[in-house]
Every structure is written in C-alpha cells, then in structure tokens.
C-alpha cells in the first residue's frame, strides 16, 4: 500500500504548479524508505523527473527519510494522530529518521514536507 502511494508521487507533484514553484531552486536526489520499499526520488527544479525503486547498490542519494509502513500510513491520514502528524514529530518519538546531508531539505523545507505528505490527497483507494 505504501508502495502505491510513493509510485504516484511524480504525478501529484508534477501537476501541482505552486509546489513546483516552491521547489524551483531545488535539484537533488533523496531516498524515501518504508519497511518494504525504498525509492530514489530525483527532483529537478521542483519537478520529480525520476523515481527509481531500490535497493540499487552504490546509487547515491543526498539524504534519506525513513519510517515504517505503519508510520507512513498514519502520517498520510487526513487527520493523523498526534506524533505522526509531522515528520519532525515522528523523528522526535522515534517513528522516523532523517539522515545524510540535510541542507537541500532544510533550505527547501516547506517543499519537502509538503511533498512527503502528498499521499494525504490521494485517498485510500
């Protein structure tokens, strides 16, 4: 289920003109991980131009955001429970981790937080 949400991210990001505009200065690749899946998400000036399923040996990424399937599914609820409603809340309670070079994320924080929360808009189909 988590897999299905992540696979739809490029479609949802690339048709959101304001989100692309907010990420217009961001070009990077990061790894989004769950219990069962991992994806290299490559962003070019705010658009996702490549989504590659892992694991991919020796493929570089700048930073990694990781949470369990259950944590992601809670994060993507319309009204997530307290603790799962924000990626930093999840990190604080030990339900997620963020590692690597954080500069691209922190300097584009609203964009990254909105991108990883996009499955909230996808519905649970």
């Amino acid at each position: 289920m988590v897999d299905n949400f992540i696979k739809r991210l490029p479609d949802f990001v690339n048709r959101d003109a304001w989100l692309i505009w907010r990420g217009r200065h961001l070009t990077t690749t990061f790894l989004l991980k769950s219990s069962q899946a991992e994806y290299f998400i490559s962003i070019s000036e705010g658009e996702i131009h490549q989504l590659v399923a892992g694991p991919q040996l020796l493929r570089p990424s700048v930073f990694t955001i990781k949470a369990s399937d259950g944590a992601w599914l809670k994060h993507w609820m319309k009204f997530p429970p307290s603790g799962w409603h924000d990626i930093f809340a999840m990190v604080k309670i030990g339900e997620a981790s963020i590692e690597g070079d954080l500069y691209p994320m922190m300097s584009n924080l609203r964009y990254i937080k909105e991108l990883i929360a996009l499955p909230r808009k996808m519905g649970r189909d």
């Binding site: 009204f79 997530p80 924000d86 930093f88 809340a89 922190m106 300097s107 609203r110 937080k113």
Partner: peptide, 20 residues
C-alpha cells in the same frame, strides 16, 4: 545567510499546529 530565515522557521513550526 544561505537559508531563508522566515521560510525555515515557519516550515519547522508548521507541524506544531494541529491538523484540524
């Protein structure tokens, strides 16, 4: 100087607001 102060402060604390 290389990170917009207003943008990062607001993005950080945005998660402290209840989703409702």
């Amino acid at each position: 100087p290389d990170v917009h102060g207003g943008e990062i402060c607001s993005a950080l604390i945005s998660g402290l607001i209840a989703p409702q």
